[in-house]
Design a protein around this nucleic acid. Structure first.
Lengths: 337, 337
DNA sequence: CTGTTAGCGCTTTCAC
DNA sequence: GTGAAAGCGCTAACAG
């Protein structure tokens, strides 16, 4: 933000006309003569004139900047969401400001504080795992700044949300295994204090019941990282429990399970089938390729941003909307009989 | 950016004093009486007053916002860099605006254009693979906006850079293979219009020469994605050329090569050793685990942001600085004899 | 100790 | 068809 920017004043001075005329000429205002417009535009191009976004923001009370509060960018899913957000933002003249909470409550609050300084027109939020107090979100409501929650929503706040149909995704994945003839299906489950973990477990349970498969509680194991999957899978094998497949809460966990299975001499999918969740890039890279559930992250980002723009530009208030995005089962080698 | 924000004027009106007094009171200016300060601060707290960042930016000619132009956030490495950038930015009161080029030249130019609207104090850039024309970068120089390049720099622009010692990393990786007794080492090389691709190739070449290994040009193949590695590795095998190891420009390419090798019945590392670059999460998940070169992404982000802040706040011009970050060879199963 | 004024860059009434 | 003036929110020089 150094001083060398050309302003409307500079052009006006050089042409011996007033700033207001220049402003109008640049916006092709009908009152201005063709000749003046020509002169102004010529000079603007020559000096690479760009309207000063900050001055515009101050004047218009709109910055065309939106804020994103997101747990951790380093997950493929979240970075896909950001790409979707950016896609729609760019297409509509918005810029995107990003702040990570790193799943830490205090950082989330700090991120929201920063966004309350008047610079943003609206905010997209995915709530951190730690968060149980929602006052920092209320501040946006007070200021009249629209919020759209994505992926991780909060019931206590009246706002739009775009979320994944985790239940259905897990249901499809489990039913797929059953259709392939599997019955002793292990589930490596996510944390049960979060909806996402609950919904995926519930989808698994429902699919089992609907298909008359006996549920063995011992096959439902809390495990949601690559590292813990290495440990838990080995324990599972050594436990002597019979199982013919594993459905995991995410792809990293599946990759860990897969690795340990192979190292113990199991054939995948012949002996044990493996299904992940998320359609992370990794699912294509492991050998055999991993059956998984596609989470439309990019799509989610797009929808969330579209909804936010709708809120920012709406004239009359409308009730909050929840958009549920469908998942898609992607069958690959790790489960194909 | 709705209207409900409390301003200095509002507080002044309610207290029957002037806006300037309020402004001064809020900054604890020595001229203002304790009583007035108390009154002002009380009201400010009561109404949740926050200084309007946009007005401040316009006034100070500094926004405390920086821009980041980055190829693709969805790579673990780049998102680590962003985390590093954010870490330092937050600690110093800066906000971060992100724009992805998706390795597309036109999008990179568009991203730069947007950042030229006066909203940013400085910019961090990692150049897209496609970029061969650098005029859009020059615009920042003209406007007096400092640039720091990270990871993918450009010789044609005089600016700070924080880069990985790609040459040394590639040298170490290659020498490691040689020490393991490999001689016919394939290199899947990155684009040669980027320093990063050049340096990694050069490191490979130097290590070969230093160790008296004959260089076979046919074993140097342009290939830098998972998908292309699937194709190129198969072609390589079918070509009948003899090789005993592959060193790739990144881990995804290594993962692709690994997959095809295994599918063709090769044992890794017994028949063919594979070494990647980047220490992506994937390198641990594939089977066997992948020997790779650690790139300190988070560190890079921090250093780049620190350097940018130095530029933004510097009083007298100083010559450009290049910071070279050391890599570390991580030996895993894919190359251990 | 506090108020007035001017101005950051831009637009938009209102006036001629 | 064009200009002058006011104001978005804030601050700093200048006056008292």
């Amino acid at each position: 933000m150094k001083s060398s920017q050309v302003t409307i004043k500079d052009i006006a001075r050089e042409l011996g006309i007033s700033p207001s005329t220049v402003s109008r000429a640049l916006k092709d205002h009908p009152d201005i003569s063709q000749e003046t417009k020509r002169l102004v535009n010529e000079l603007a191009k020559k000096y690479n004139y760009k309207p000063n976004a900050i001055a515009l923001s101050l004047r218009n009370q709109r910055s065309n900047v939106i804020g994103v509060v997101i747990p951790e960018i380093v997950h493929y899913f979240f970075s896909s969401v950001i790409s979707g957000i950016e896609e729609v933002a760019n297409a509509n003249g918005y810029s995107v400001m990003i702040s990570q909470s790193n799943e830490d409550f205090n950082r989330e609050v700090a991120a929201c504080e920063t966004f309350l300084n008047g610079i943003i027109d609206g905010v997209l939020i995915s709530v951190s795992k730690e968060t149980n107090d929602y006052t920092h979100f209320h501040r946006f409501e007070e200021e009249g700044i629209p919020i759209v929650f994505f992926d991780r929503a909060v019931d206590e706040i009246q706002a739009d949300r775009v979320i994944i149909d985790d239940f259905d995704g897990a249901y499809q994945a489990t039913e797929h295994l059953i259709v392939q003839g599997r019955r002793k299906i292990v589930h490596f489950a996510g944390p049960q204090n979060r909806l996402i973990g609950q919904n995926r477990l519930n989808g698994y349970l429902k699919a089992m019941r609907d298909n008359g498969v006996v549920i063995d509680e011992r096959l439902i194991i809390p495990c949601d990282t690559f590292q813990s999957a290495l440990v838990e899978t080995q324990k599972l094998i050594e436990s002597g429990l019979k199982f013919d497949s594993i459905f995991t809460v995410n792809d990293f966990t599946a990759a860990g399970a897969l690795k340990i299975l192979l190292r113990n001499g199991y054939k995948v999918p012949d002996d044990i089938a493996v299904v992940g969740f998320g359609d992370d890039q990794t699912s294509l890279m492991v050998e055999p390729t991993l059956t998984t559930v596609n989470q439309p992250g990019f799509e989610m980002g797009k929808k969330a941003m579209e909804q936010l723009i709708r809120r920012i530009t709406q004239t009359k208030p409308e009730p909050p909307v929840t958009e549920l995005l469908k998942t898609q089962l992607i069958v690959r080698e790790s489960s194909r009989s």
